[in-house]
């Protein structure tokens, strides 16, 4: 059996639009390694001035929640309105929170 790898690994790309903002996930690409992934992310995702900083991470290094567990994980939060801090009377000074 051949040990040659024909497919490059997949990387997820995160781009920061400008200083102070957070890095946002914007897509994925194939690259031979992380260093080249940064360069190719620059080519693919920032050619129209979208970014000032790029992060990449191997897609296989991301552990995701199982879509099948959606009911169990997220639905129970639906009727817990008391978890939102919307029942407090705010003084005028902090009215724009």
């Amino acid at each position: 059996m051949s040990t040659v790898q024909n497919e490059w690994p997949l990387f997820e790309v995160f781009v920061r639009a400008k200083a102070g903002l957070d890095h946002k996930h914007c897509g994925s690409l194939h690259a031979p390694d992380a260093k080249m992934a940064v360069q190719l992310a620059r080519e693919v995702y920032t050619r129209r001035q979208e970014g000032t900083s790029v992060w990449v991470v191997r897609s296989s290094d991301i552990t995701a929640s199982d879509p099948g567990d959606k009911d169990m994980l997220f639905d129970p939060a639906e009727d817990k309105v008391y978890r939102h801090p919307s029942f407090y009377e705010l003084p005028d000074a902090v009215n724009h929170m």
Partner: peptide, 11 residues
């Protein structure tokens, strides 16, 4: 050779 490098060369 791959889409990403195609874009890089053209850029």
């Amino acid at each position: 050779p791959v889409l990403e490098e195609d874009i890089a060369l053209t850029n």
